[in-house]
Nucleic acid binder design. Structure first.
Lengths: 154, 154
DNA sequence: CGGAAATAATCAGTGCCCTGATTAATTCGG
DNA sequence: CCGAATTAATCAGGGCACTGATTATTTCCG
């Protein structure tokens, strides 16, 4: 059988896109704080006091990965973890002052990086780019829980 | 400072897209062989006898990652590594019969999975999807080696 | 009230992904 | 010819991402 053309394989393209982004992030935004870590900081700026599981849900990280990311941010002193007095299973998360400062600094750099990253596309193409990726990702996400259909069953 | 909207951050979207793909691959293609591993098999079907570094270059994996992937495929008996008699630094890679059979089987399943993954998009949209991602990834790739401009310097 | 089911977090294990340092072999220049 | 630079591969180390199993706590129901 002939070899497949990977340039028409969405999974391969997705991986290459993420690698390219990782590289640019590393050089233009931060070598310490990663993009997923920034996503967590960003979520806690919008909604302080969320628990770990919910933060993971917001940014798209499973229970194990979010635990690791939170642990690193906590070790760096960017957020505090306190047990929920209402529910002893949960830990409530909140950024420290240092965490807020870091988020502010990285937000500016991230915006600059996105400009460079998207430079090859026109404004209209960027809109399409976001739309297409979001639709594909959302649809695949939806296949996860067959028990939770998007529309109520007849 | 207000929180950023991650749905307009290409890096975040790229990560979500890859996660969605990973999930679908796992359920529709294979739980043993991963997408990067398939990419390596695919490259060696097209060009048997390549060395490790070149395979990594073809599929977009750095020297460390390609070493790990090759090691796993070798352990599973899907490829053979022999030292290049012409250049003792290199190992030449070649699929085993089992490797070729595995590639053939997964090629069929991968095509089916891509259909499902891209189902939300029309044929024209798929073309645009590939084009936009490729352009962004290629451009970011090009920023890696500033010493190697795409056009000859004046 | 008290046991069963559900839920939040952790742990163990596997694999991808990168950088910087090291080792072995080849190539290049004097 | 021989030392210096280059190159292929490996190793150490850090981080992301998933699954399955376990632990602690809460909730649900008889």
């Amino acid at each position: 059988m002939a070899a497949a053309d990977l340039t028409t394989h969405p999974g391969h393209l997705a991986r290459r896109l993420q690698q390219a982004h990782y590289l640019l992030w590393n050089t233009m935004v931060s070598e310490e704080i990663t993009s997923p870590q920034f996503a967590v900081l960003n979520t806690l700026v919008a909604e302080p006091g969320l628990d770990q599981r919910t933060v993971g849900e917001r940014v798209g990280l499973d229970r194990s990965t979010i635990a690791e990311v939170i642990s690193r941010l906590s070790r760096r002193g960017l957020l505090d973890k306190v047990r929920d007095p209402q529910d002893g299973r949960r830990f409530l998360l909140r950024l420290t002052d240092e965490g807020v400062r870091t988020h502010r600094k990285l937000t500016v750099r991230t915006a600059r990086m996105n400009q460079v990253f998207l430079a090859p596309l026109t404004a209209e193409e960027r809109t399409v780019f976001f739309d297409l990726i979001r639709r594909v990702a959302d649809a695949a996400e939806g296949l996860r829980n067959p028990g939770e259909p998007l529309v109520a069953p007849g």
